[in-house]
Write a protein that binds this DNA or RNA. Structure first.
Lengths: 105, 105
DNA sequence: ACAGTTAGTTACTTTATGTAAGTAATTTTA
DNA sequence: TAAAATTACTTACATAAAGTAACTAACTGT
């Protein structure tokens, strides 16, 4: 059994270990976005994006806002809890730039 | 198509989005460890741990050292590339402590 | 000799992810 | 005005990844 790792930390890691979760949060760090924009920006399928956004909404990380314009516009954005991922993303960025230099063309 | 996200960043995220990868790195940040110790500390199955350690070795994040004692001892440790994950883990820890306070008993 | 440990592997099941097409409500274009 | 496109999804199905449990092989301690 394993009881020696902090459960909060474990849960956070489990979130990030869900495929696409991190990329979705990173994508939303650049501002509120619509479903189909995220779909093409990330190269993710509608099904998985839909699932992930629902999960992230349930976790209180993403907020779904309906603008009842005509046509209706639905935007996804980060809550404070989601915005607080920024330092993590910055460190991932730093690590990747140091240790995974882009391949030569 | 999606070409606007840095490929290095994407690769780093894909690493972390592999289940257990983050937890294994975190576990090894506390020092070199043997297979069966990690197995029980993380509550991961031997099969998956074996797979992940192989992947991480190929990525140059984990080093496998054989001590030809009797009986033979095999230890897994982080390379510099692996140790450089520490700031990321610290930020994940910080986020989790702020936003995922442990449930009441 | 027998049970236990270590570092795995193998076979099989379950879950997660990906792919492609479909839908319903609009809106733009010919 | 009919046909095509867009948005925000869902559904059905295929494949890949993870989990479970049992097994192996080499040793070791009792």
């Amino acid at each position: 059994m394993h009881t020696w790792i902090c459960p909060s930390f474990e849960k956070a890691m489990r979130l990030l270990a869900q495929r696409w979760t991190g990329m979705i949060i990173y994508q939303l760090l650049s501002g509120p976005q619509r479903f189909c924009h995220m779909e093409s920006a990330l190269g993710i399928s509608g099904k998985v994006l839909s699932d992930r956004l629902k999960d992230l909404e349930n976790e209180g990380i993403v907020k779904r806002t309906i603008y009842p314009e005509t046509p209706v516009r639905i935007e996804y954005s980060l809550t404070d809890k989601g915005l607080a991922f920024e330092p993590i993303m910055r460190e991932v960025e730093r690590w990747s730039q140091t240790w995974l230099p882009s391949a030569s063309p």
